[in-house]
């Protein structure tokens, strides 16, 4: 008893465990860290947001006119500055990632002396990514499915999307708990962690099969055949009208400038 004991566990190779934990956490955070969690409804109709985003990306990618591109930049920056700081930072992080990737792709062209063109293309890429990121930051998942169904996208697609998102979140939580359990129980050096990881994947598969069965039963019980009916009243708000007017101005500018030429 008088001898001081020092126990140092041997170094354990657990990097992959931590990496998978972080990856799952990242996906879950991206899914959960979305607007609309507080229960506040969107101020703009989601289908209008979706259509506007599609239109903006389309027009920006078709445009060869620098004036139109600058107008689109003004619109997007103007919208972006209305968000909270946290959201702006998240959006800009996505755009920065796209910028790095696009810059790497365009680098050879830049070195071969197509500087002006490359900057123009880079600007277009960034604007398209920015438009998508703004949409994603401003729209909760439930509204995305609502937007798809209002835009007459086939129900099968909407249901698949809806369930995928819900089950990524559900099963992700499950995996996370199992990974934590594995980490907690691997005191000292655990040589058999890889086997346990296989077991986790297997369990996940079994659980998802169970979930599919219960989902089907729940659908039957509630008489849900996969047809989405939207119950929300559809009065146009001033924000809707504002966004629609903005779309109209941009489209008119595109055609008036002959921006595709």
């Amino acid at each position: 008893m008088a001898v001081r004991e020092r126990y140092e566990p041997r170094r354990d190779k657990g990097r992959y465990l931590e990496k998978s934990l972080l990856a799952v956490l990242g996906v879950l955070a991206a899914l959960r860290d979305r607007p609309g969690e507080s229960g506040r409804r969107d101020r703009v109709r989601p289908e209008l947001k979706l259509a506007s985003t599609f239109m903006l990306i389309l027009l920006v990618s078709l445009s060869r006119n620098s004036l139109f591109i600058e107008a689109a930049a003004a619109v997007e920056l103007g919208l972006l500055c209305l968000f909270r700081g946290e959201v702006i930072a998240r959006v800009l992080r996505k755009v920065a990632a796209a910028a790095v990737f696009a810059a790497a792709v365009f680098l050879p062209a830049f070195l071969w002396g197509r500087g002006g063109n490359v900057l123009f293309l880079l600007g277009k890429v960034l604007l398209a990514v920015l438009a998508a990121a703004i949409f994603s930051a401003a729209t909760p998942w439930t509204s995305v499915t609502e937007a798809f169904s209002r835009l007459r996208v086939p129900d099968v697609f909407v249901m698949t999307l809806d369930m995928t998102i819900k089950y990524i979140s559900l099963l992700g939580g499950l995996v996370l708990n199992m990974l934590y359990a594995l980490k907690l129980r691997s005191v000292g050096r655990n040589e058999r962690k890889m086997h346990s990881l296989a077991a986790i994947a297997g369990t996940l598969f079994l659980k998802s099969r169970d979930a599919a069965v219960t989902q089907y039963q729940a659908m039957e019980c509630r008489c849900f055949s996969g047809t989405y009916r939207i119950t929300r009243a559809s009065a146009w708000s001033p924000f809707d009208a504002g966004l629609a007017a903005l779309d109209a101005v941009l489209a008119a500018a595109f055609f008036a400038l002959g921006a595709w030429r």
């Binding site: 600058e70 107008a71 930049a73 003004a74 619109v75 920056l77 103007g78 972006l80 500055c81 968000f83 909270r84 700081g85 946290e86 702006i88 930072a89 800009l92």
Partner: peptide, 19 residues
């Protein structure tokens, strides 16, 4: 357009700073 872009850039910069 310059006015819009400038104003938006300034506001975004300060919102990020506040963060």
């Amino acid at each position: 357009l310059s006015a819009i872009i400038g104003v938006a850039a300034v506001i975004i910069a300060f919102k990020l700073l506040a963060l």
